[in-house]
Design a protein around this nucleic acid. Sequence first.
DNA 1: ATTTCAAGTAACTTGACAGTTACTTCGCTT
DNA 2: AAGCGAAGTAACTGTCAAGTTACTTGAAAT
Lengths: 217, 217
Amino acid sequence: MKAEANSKPKHACRNPRQSRERILESALKEFAAKGFAGARVDCIARQARINKRMLYHYFGDKEGLFREVLRRKMAERAAWLASAPEDPIERLPYWFDLAFRDRDWIRLLEWESLQWGEDRIIDEEHRTRAFANANDRIRRLQEKGRLDSDFNSGQLILSMMALTAYPLAFPQLARLATGLAVSDPKFKHQYEKFLRQFAAAFKPGNKNSNAGGKTVK
Amino acid sequence: MKAEANSKPKHACRNPRQSRERILESALKEFAAKGFAGARVDCIARQARINKRMLYHYFGDKEGLFREVLRRKMAERAAWLASAPEDPIERLPYWFDLAFRDRDWIRLLEWESLQWGEDRIIDEEHRTRAFANANDRIRRLQEKGRLDSDFNSGQLILSMMALTAYPLAFPQLARLATGLAVSDPKFKHQYEKFLRQFAAAFKPGNKNSNAGGKTVK
DNA sequence: ATTTCAAGTAACTTGACAGTTACTTCGCTT
DNA sequence: AAGCGAAGTAACTGTCAAGTTACTTGAAAT
């Protein structure tokens, strides 16, 4: 309200919203880079240009901050997943591009899996819903005959994530296998092409694709 | 000091070899579980039933120990990779089974990628050789016509690793996608079946499988 | 048997880091 | 304009963990 004509805003005045935002932003960087155990609270606070005490004020403790960072990132990405192109052949390179552009996301997923394994999934409800939608989409494609329906839709999603995220999650292995650094533009080009070839093999009509399907063991 | 006539071999005498071995063993467990930053040197020493000082004696520092643990694990696994079945359809479930049986290995790879990214690959020379062999094997299969030769062999290896290791590296995503816990025997069964179906789509003769590209550069 | 050196130990140093205390400043409400 | 609670700060605390010191013990070589 009232304007305070020439009050010098030495501390840029108060702005809890923005402070919170800055903390989350620098926490994302720190956690993505060093993980939970490796991250330094003081470092996050310094980078956010706030006092450490405020960080504890907003997020309780280090783990609370980590969980909040993850929660937000997941929510952000869930929307992206839904926005994939219909064409199954273009979907893989599209997902790869998403992952390529946001390594922090991939790294957070990695830290999450190492820290908590398959139990205690963060923001489980929300993510479960996102996956259910993705499943439905796949099944609709299968019904329309644009995707082979021999495959279990959940497994298909899993394998698609595998193909698009793996080289980014394990860049050292990608380099050993292909001889190219993942950050090399050539790698990106080559891999996207590969993914298209790959997806093409799943167009229905390839009718030997149930070879393994009947019996196992 | 003084003689202590009937010196009982209270410390089970000296055995540097075994001590080293015990350190490496408990270090593997600790690092796989908590990563480099999260692991506690005192904890490793206690579990190995040696004095911390000896650990520093043998391995210099914490990082030296970590690198040695990784080096040994990699060497161990390299041999396994080479022993995969010829049949491309059985190779994926075989690799999956290997990974399934040794989660510590997968976790170490994850920690490695997070800690050092694509540079500073540990034991690079040795691993490069192992990958070169794998590449040769793929190409031989392609020449024999048992695998589609449109695909770049390095990328093929990468994608095969992706398909076999991803659910184990990201168990939380596997569960969200399929509804089954990775450690659930049902998951293993279902996923191995899926991998066979998947591989079958790559048998040559599926001749729409070059949709994405003419030649790989 | 004496030397010698690797194997082994307990106690310590040093620094770092998560979390806290005790306090001040701002701005809004009444 | 007084008071109140949220926003903010500097300095502190207790703990923990990596790495070291200064020592002892064992056994093999001389």
